[in-house]
Simulated assay, not measured.
Amino acid sequence: MAESLPPALHPPVAVALAKLIKAFPGPNALPGGLNAEPKFDGFRTTAFNDAGKVTLWSRQGKELTRILPDAAAALAEQVPPGVVLDGETIIWNRDRLDFDALQQRMVTSKAALPALAKELPASFVAFDVLAVAGQDTRGVPFPGRRQLLEELARDWAAPLHLSPITRDMDLAKTWLRDLPATGIEGLMFKGSQPYEAARIWLKLKHKDIWDVVCAAVIGSVTHHRRPAHRRQTEDCRPLDRRVHEGRA
């Protein structure tokens, strides 16, 4: 008989969140030290396999199964019943994450969705596990949950993926520097805490610093032939106008 989920893990389930930080954290910023993972630009998605039936849910509690049929099918094929995964649904377009392609699915008709999914298929990247074999694992400290997740993911094939993780903060800094070229937003940091629906993690977003030259005429009209100029450095952060249901 297929494993069912305990009542406390019937969807939707509140998920763990992260506190935004402005600088790379120190080694004691979280209990048990730091584990760093890439922060993917996609839909935060919780995947439930309840007695063989797979459903996908957003962080806000909206069901996403209809718009992510390819990810749901892969999870049904490769993840055993009684498992709940926390992760990110993403779409790769050439060598870069394409968040707009995910958004497009939310406004695409049921009839047109299969063609869209075939053109730009979705992938699911798992970074935590809330249940295994029908047993709630949220009370297990993060290192134990990560071990369970790695065992589940041992034989996975695309489009299912295990999120990379490191305790080497020098390596994490290279990720923060290099991976944004692929659409990665920054880094997530996790300690050894159990899983709970609170801001128990830390989030550091990548930002670009540009030197810009701003020129303008100042002073009275009589001095317009000798305008002053000023050079300044701006912290250029991208303006994100994308408000949607699944964003982490």
Score class of each variant (00 low, 15 high):
residue 141 P to E: 01
residue 153 A to G: 13
residue 136 D to V: 02
residue 131 A to I: 09
residue 137 T to I: 08
residue 148 L to E: 04
residue 147 Q to S: 14
residue 142 F to W: 10
residue 174 T to P: 09
residue 172 A to S: 01
residue 174 T to E: 13
residue 171 L to S: 08
residue 145 R to I: 05
residue 154 R to K: 13
residue 175 W to Q: 02
residue 168 D to G: 05
residue 167 R to N: 09
residue 137 T to N: 11
residue 151 E to T: 09
residue 171 L to H: 08
residue 135 Q to H: 08
residue 141 P to I: 02
residue 148 L to F: 00
residue 129 V to F: 04
residue 130 L to Q: 11
residue 158 A to I: 00
residue 131 A to D: 08
residue 143 P to L: 07
residue 133 A to S: 14
residue 171 L to F: 05
residue 150 E to M: 12
residue 166 T to K: 06
residue 171 L to P: 07
residue 156 W to I: 00
residue 157 A to V: 04
residue 134 G to A: 08
residue 140 V to A: 15
residue 146 R to K: 07
residue 176 L to N: 02
residue 135 Q to C: 00
residue 163 S to Q: 05
residue 133 A to L: 09
residue 162 L to W: 03
residue 131 A to T: 10
residue 131 A to H: 12
residue 152 L to A: 06
residue 170 D to R: 15
residue 137 T to S: 14
residue 148 L to V: 03
residue 167 R to W: 04
residue 147 Q to F: 07
residue 165 I to K: 09
residue 175 W to R: 05
residue 174 T to H: 14
residue 137 T to Q: 15
residue 144 G to D: 08
residue 154 R to N: 01
residue 160 L to T: 04
residue 169 M to Y: 08
residue 152 L to K: 13
residue 157 A to I: 01
residue 153 A to D: 04
residue 163 S to T: 04
residue 141 P to F: 03
residue 133 A to I: 06
residue 154 R to L: 07
residue 170 D to L: 15
residue 132 V to P: 02
residue 152 L to E: 08
residue 169 M to C: 10
residue 155 D to V: 05
residue 158 A to H: 04
residue 150 E to V: 06
residue 167 R to S: 11
residue 129 V to S: 08
residue 147 Q to E: 11
residue 131 A to F: 09
residue 167 R to A: 11
residue 166 T to W: 00
residue 171 L to T: 10
residue 129 V to T: 10
residue 170 D to G: 15
residue 149 L to C: 11
residue 129 V to W: 03
residue 161 H to R: 15
residue 153 A to S: 11
